[in-house]
Structure formats: C-alpha cells, structure tokens
Design a protein around this nucleic acid. Structure first.
Lengths: 154, 154
DNA sequence: AAGCCAGTTGCGAATGATTTGCAGGAAAGG
DNA sequence: CCTTTCCTGCAAATCATTCGCAACTGGCTT
C-alpha cells in the first residue's frame, strides 16, 4: 500500500500522513490529481527538509512529467492549509516539512547544511513574556541556530 | 560637520559612526569614493531598518547619480567587514542596520511592518545550553518574533 | 458509459531582488 | 600631473518563485 519495498517500519505512518495531507486538500476543495497525489506521497515520506526542486525531483519518479510549477502551487496550497511548513533559511531556497503535532525550531549545521529540530518550552515561554512586556502578542516566530559541531577534546 | 540642520542631538554620534564605517572600509583596503562616502553617512544616520532600495533613495540625495549596484556592492562589503548587519525577514527584501555594540533580536509588527529590537540574556543562555547539549556550539542565530499589538481592553 | 465544466496542468514568459560583465572614470600615491 | 588599480553606472544575467494561458481532466451528473 505504501508503494515499493522500503523498510517495513514507518510505512504505515507515511501512508497515514499522506492521507492527512490528502484530506487537507479535499477539505480546501481542491482536486486530487495524480500529480498532487504523487507529491503528497513524497512530502509525507520526506524525513529531511527538502526544497521545491528536490521535492520535484522525487515526485517525478512517481509521476513523470509533473512540472515544477505544479509542485510550487501545491506546496503553497498545503502551506495555506497548515499541513506543511515553509522554512526560509539564510540565503537558501525555501525548504518544506510536514507539520508534525508539535512545534519546533531549527538548528542548521553551517558546515554540513544538516538541519536538526529541537524545542524548548522555556524559550517559548520567555518569548511570550518578552512580547507581552512590550504590549505585543506573538503571531508566530522564527528561531534558527546556525551551529558547528563542537570539538570534543580532539 | 554632520551636514544639514537636523536635530542637534545625535549628530555627533552619527558623525562618529560614519567614521567607524569609513575606517572599516579603509582597513579592508577599499577606496573611499564619494558614492561610498554618501552611502556611509546614510547608513550611519539610519535609525530604522531600511532595505537597499530605500538606502539608495536616501543616498541619491547626497550624491545624485549613485547607482543601486554600488549601493548593493558597498553594503555587501560593509557586511563582510562586520560593521553592518543584513536582516532577512519573511518574504521581504533584505534590510540593513549598523552593528551596534550590543547584539539584539527583532520583533516585527505583522500589521504595521514596524521593527522593534530587544534582547534577552536568558534566551541567549538557553540557546547556547540547548546547542551544547546536542554537541554543537552556536556560530550565530536568528530570532524573530512576528507580533501584533495586544488589545489592551479598548 | 458519456458529458460537462470548473479547477488543473505544463510551458514559457514575467517577477523581483540581487549580482555581474564590461568599458569608461576616478581614488591614491608617486 | 601621471599611472595603476580599483570603482562606477548600465545593462544583461541569475535565481527562486509566480503567472498567463490554452489544453486537459477530475469528479460529478445524467
């Protein structure tokens, strides 16, 4: 059902996530075309943080001929529905990730480009506190730590 | 010396900042042309967070004919020297600010576009702590709070 | 199974911000 | 004043992303 013979582990979760994305689009009243279906599977299965071009590359494998325009259009729609998130790191093209149940921030290894997710209740609370103290309420925020692997006594 | 008849208050500080920017370029071994001189004064005098086009608009008043290319080139050089900072907020063109002695983060009013600066030692400390716990050290970071003025019972 | 039709698609052209190639121009220092 | 090297303005090039448009197709309705 998940297509292919990838690791048995996790396939179900991906299928479920694909279903969630599909429902989000249906709810938004948009048609589930085969190009969208292909892209949804790709997005649901992405464990990394790919940009539009990379998602397109992967989608082409499932649905040859799908255009980059369609990928962008669908990603924009998915973002509008709140089921995926657009990440805009310094200088790079936007990357996308499916919205998990929990919010998190990102740590970007400046040497490898690798992205690590993390979450800190304390920081979240402090942010709200600071904004409140200045008479504001937070609509959304962005916290990115550009890091380097720490030399561990070499 | 500061040029013009703006508020007496602050003129000296701007002149000093202009001097700092000028020195930074000299140190970098680049020539102080009149277009650069004009731009440096504009940057030093900017109390807001203007983008390249706006800085160009202001620079043209002091040095008619200065091109946008030159503005971009010089801003890039100033950034490389670390005396100004490039801010990349969601969707917008890059904005610039002269590097003050202290580091700070930004709060962007999503309704007015206004930018407020703030700083929290506690958040800074927590970030370093989190990164360290995952084996990283922070190279730089970016924290932006997209906010809305809180309804204060009116 | 056919038909209908608004929503979609692929393509190429358009955007918008920023960068770059190049030929003429001008800082710095002799 | 001269020379050398760096700059500048301009136009064209990039790059990521969006749009216009004619052809196409989901997903109903019959």
């Amino acid at each position: 059902m998940g297509g292919g013979f990838a690791q048995e582990n996790g396939m179900a979760a991906i299928d479920q996530r694909t279903e969630e994305l599909t429902q989000a689009l249906r709810t938004a009243g948009v048609r589930i075309t085969r190009q969208r279906k292909a892209l949804l599977e790709v997005v649901a299965g992405a464990e990394d943080h790919p940009d539009a071009v990379e998602l397109h590359r992967r989608a082409v494998e499932k649905m040859p001929g799908i255009s980059l325009s369609t990928v962008y259009r669908t990603l924009t729609e998915l973002e509008a529905q709140g089921v995926i998130q657009r990440l805009q790191f310094e200088g790079e093209a936007a990357r996308f990730e499916h919205t998990e149940t929990d919010h998190h921030d990102h740590m970007i290894d400046v040497e490898t480009g690798e992205v690590v997710e993390f979450r800190s209740e304390r920081i979240e609370a402090l942010q709200a506190e600071i904004a409140a103290a200045m008479g504001y309420e937070i609509v959304r925020h962005r916290l990115e730590l550009y890091v380097r692997r720490k030399p561990s006594g070499g």
